[in-house]
Amino acid sequence: MQDLQVELIEESIGFTGRGLITGIVFFDFGAFQFPEREWNDAVVVIVDWWLIALINLVEGRTGEVELRFMEGSFWLSVRREVGDECQIQCIEGSRASVQFQCRTSAVKLLRSTLMIAARLQRICYDKGWRSVDVEALENHVGEARKLAGEH
């Protein structure tokens, strides 16, 4: 199974005039990064989407989820296979072109996403950034911690 990490560049996190919290976030598969190493997006919103989707996948509410980016036409298709194993496809564009695929642990993917979400939560708290998006992320971090066996 492929080792993968969700990566967040903390120095890139900022609060836009439109009220979004943005920053560099991407999936790192070692030799392959998706969508790319310097991908900037609405990090609080998309990481919250990812947490919700992965909670549903790990709890068995669904057998397949999409981890979408807000900017551009990029997403990960994550399909549950046997046990904790899942098939990941990195997909780009309107033609749904598969850029990379591998197998990994659904729980490990949830934990990596949870680590990023908790870091985002701390950054927002430290900077005094409050919004509906930050509150939603906080709620889902708590739910994911219970599911991932973290307290």
Rank of each mutant, 00 (worst) to 15 (best):
E143N: 02
Y125D: 08
G128I: 09
V45F: 12
I21E: 00
I91M: 09
A53F: 03
T22P: 01
Q33W: 00
F32M: 04
E66D: 08
I46S: 08
E36R: 14
Q2H: 10
W50T: 03
R95E: 14
L51C: 09
G142C: 05
G93Q: 10
Q101D: 12
V47S: 04
R18V: 00
V45E: 13
D126L: 15
V6Q: 05
S112Q: 15
G83N: 15
C102L: 10
T62C: 10
A53I: 02
R37Y: 14
V43R: 03
G72R: 01
E92H: 11
Q33T: 14
G93P: 04
W49G: 01
L147Y: 00
L147M: 07
D41H: 11
G128S: 03
E38L: 13
L110N: 07
E38W: 11
I123R: 08
L8V: 05
V44Y: 08
E59M: 10
A106V: 07
I9D: 05
M70S: 02
M1S: 10
R145G: 05
V43Y: 04
R130M: 02
K108A: 11
A53E: 13
Q87D: 07
R122C: 00
V6C: 14
T113W: 01
T113D: 04
E64N: 08
S131E: 09
S97T: 14
R79L: 01
G17C: 08
R18S: 05
A31H: 14
F27I: 09
I55H: 01
F100G: 04
V6M: 15
Q2N: 12
R80Q: 13
A144Y: 05
G142M: 06
D84P: 15
R61W: 11
V47E: 02
D133W: 05
V82H: 06
E36H: 15
R18C: 01
W129S: 00
E38M: 14
E92S: 11
V141I: 15
G128E: 14
M70N: 02
L20G: 03
G72S: 01
S112P: 03
R95F: 03
I9M: 10
K127H: 11
K108V: 07
L57A: 06
S131P: 04
G149Y: 08
D3V: 05
W50S: 10
Q121K: 15
R61M: 06
G83F: 12
N56D: 13
E7A: 14
F34R: 00
S94A: 12
I46Y: 12
K108I: 04
E10N: 07
V25G: 07
H151C: 02
F69P: 01
W50G: 02
E85L: 15
K127A: 09
L109T: 04
K146V: 13
E36M: 12
A148Q: 06
